[in-house]
Write a protein that binds this DNA or RNA. Structure first.
Length: 267
DNA sequence: GCACGCCCAAACTA
DNA sequence: TTAGTTTGGGCGTG
């Protein structure tokens, strides 16, 4: 089965994608424009120009969410605000050996939310104003709400992320994962689970795209069930990139009630 | 020589 | 019980 990229069968880049017009429009213009865009990009309440990426079991939407100026400012603010994990949380153990994770990570979200990644449980820090602004922009663009964001900072092209799926049990399976990119553009590669390894059962081409400064990639279900994704090493990239993946984490109601009862009745 | 893609290690977790 | 997984290193290719 060959991959299908609707619209164009080539690598996406920032120049390919128009963005929201910053100019104020009249009511009539707005109405006409919204009607046209709704026809073209059905399914989202905020009509920003999306590009569809489709393959067997893969369903993604890509768009430029921020202008260059907005994205520059947001990048600068995040560089000041975000506090990344250090110590044990920045290391990973593989086959008995301990390695530094080849990037920096941070977790922010609603109070009390935790997220388990690579066997390490991380508590969400409270939202910062900049993160709330970006989260709201993503919600406006997608109609989806998010209660958590995992932030990865790649200091240059040597920092990377191996092939993996975001299929943790605590994620809401009906909610897409929204990935916002700021800073250096980096290649992003999807590979089908049946097309990995030497004894892969099928030949399915990987899907490659470049994630531009200010872009938003929506990974809709069931993408994360069938496709692994990675951010490979790119030694020619010399500047940093910050990636924010907004998620909806399921809140365990039973646990919450139990916790509340315990705090009321310590006996 | 260098960048990149692919595979593998055999510990640990859910 | 067992399938799935995280990163670095080795090797092949262009």
């Amino acid at each position: 089965m060959e991959q299908v990229l609707r619209g164009q069968n080539k690598r996406l880049c920032s120049n390919d994608v128009p963005r929201r017009s910053p100019r104020k429009r009249t009511k009539m213009e707005e109405h006409e424009s919204m009607k046209e865009e709704e026809d073209a990009f059905e399914g989202f309440p905020y009509p920003i120009p999306w590009q569809k990426l489709e393959a067997e079991g893969l369903d993604c939407d890509y768009a430029l969410l921020f202008t260059k100026e907005e994205a520059d400012n947001l990048f600068r603010q995040l560089e000041e605000e975000v506090v990344y994990s250090t110590g044990e949380e920045s290391k990973v153990q593989i086959f008995g050996k301990v390695y530094d994770i080849p990037r920096k990570q941070a977790t922010y979200g609603n109070a009390g939310l935790t997220y388990t990644y690579s066997g390490v449980k991380r508590l969400a820090c409270p939202w910062t104003p900049t993160l709330e602004y970006i989260r709201n922009a993503v919600t406006d663009a997608t109609g989806q709400s998010f209660n958590f964001v995992l932030i990865n900072r790649y200091k240059d092209g040597r920092d990377h992320m191996g092939e993996h799926r975001d299929d943790e049990k605590e994620l809401d399976p009906s909610c897409p994962i929204a990935s916002v990119s700021l800073g250096a553009a980096r290649d992003f590669i999807f590979r089908h689970r049946d097309a990995r390894g030497k004894q892969s059962s099928r030949q399915i081409d990987p899907v490659k795209l470049e994630l531009a400064h200010g872009s938003l990639l929506l990974m809709n279900p069931p993408t994360n069930t069938y496709w692994y994704h990675s951010l490979p090493v790119r030694k020619k990239v010399l500047s940093p990139r910050i990636n924010l993946t907004f998620r909806r984490i399921l809140v365990d109601i039973k646990k919450t009630i139990k916790k509340e009862n315990n705090s009321k009745d310590p006996g």
